[in-house]
Design a protein around this nucleic acid. Sequence first.
DNA 1: ATGGTCGTTGGACGA
Length: 255
Amino acid sequence: MIIASFNLNSIRARMPILLEWLQDARPDLVCLQETKVVDSGFPELEIQASGYEVIFRGEKAYNGVAILSRHQNRNRPPQWEDGSEETRLIRARIGGIHIVNTYVPQGVHPLSGKFRYKLDFLQSLYAFFDSAFSPDTPLVWAGDFNIAPSPEDVYAPEVFAGSVGFHPDEHAILDRFRKWGFTDLFRLHNRGRDEYTFFDYTIRNAVKRKMGWRIDHIWGTRPVADISKRAWIDLRPRLLKRPSDHAPVLVEIKI
DNA sequence: ATGGTCGTTGGACGA
């Protein structure tokens, strides 16, 4: 079973790339972020025609999340757990595995109220995990975390130290998630640097120049980590015409 | 070509 996370930066603008990538990579479960569309405008029929069930929650212009599941899997309706008006969290259960897909606020600047909101969002999410699940639960947390966990995950860690996305307060919260029981499944299977999921549009040839950030993640509790076989980033969609600024990250689970 | 690019909007804002 292959699980993927992909920030699309608008699902409507990205349909050609999404559909081609689904056919190509054939993931079993896909967590999407930044769909940027209200539910009445979500391209549900096209997704279904490509072989996936889908659940989604979006709003006008901003945010928006969805979970795709290949037709042979069972799905269940989304439940909201963060109490937010924003559409940043959606969850499902596929077989015995729980999936939580989040679009964590970007944070803008460490001195801004939006950074405080980002930290609060993560603290609420931690409380949700702690109340709704046990570390023994087969649980996947996937999405755009908007945080690069370690110096290997930013192309210029000395430049960006203390910046939003690579800030000690963010790292302290991620450490809490680790202590609770989560493992970064990509990092479990990959040691190298220069492996990124986000490349700023304003940096020309950023992928080729390896100027990116690893801010999209698939984390799992121990039961999931124990059956994970490999994890990788698929840069191909980022290299196409009119790409998202993110590339998908994938994990293969023995199930 | 000299402060960069997208997407959603319908003038900025978010990223």
